[in-house]
Amino acid sequence: MNPHWLKTCDPLSLAETSVWGKGQSVSVLITSDSLLKAGQVMKDNGLFLDFMTALDVQEGFFLSYLFCSWKAPFRVLLRVQLSHDKPRVPSLAGIHSGADWHERECHDFFGILFTDHPNLDPLLLPPEMELRPLLKKSAQRKPLTVIMPLEQIVPASAGVQDRLLSATRTETA
């Protein structure tokens, strides 16, 4: 089936990638405002949060949330881009309880602020530590366009997006 319901999470763009494993993986770029809504859509469609993580790039932080299906090799990747100076994003802990610790860890490592998070105490680092260990030094930061081939985020051709979102079943190429 085509995941046509992905429409409902206000995607900026959709792409299909193969680097996440056999079966179907869809990468969905959204804004941080629609994250909560998208999280709810994932839950309603029976996907669970596998993990979430951030990537420190020149443009800011690039967040990836991986949602997997319990029954089939099907996954959806939510991608959110944040700026360096105001890294704030709503917390998914209210919808997917598992997100709680993943976000706490992300806060430890990158200093990203998750609004409405139940408890942002340091999870892995000692509470006295100031360091954000996974932040890159600015010389080492690379632009996102260099490390992420574009077709993994935006569709390679215009047809892909329409095909994914169409309600009728079409053959995957």
Binding site: E128, M129, E130, L131, P133
Partner: peptide, 8 residues
């Protein structure tokens, strides 16, 4: 070792 501001 990185500077952590942590004393032992």
């Amino acid at each position: 070792m990185a500077e952590t501001g942590f004393s032992l």
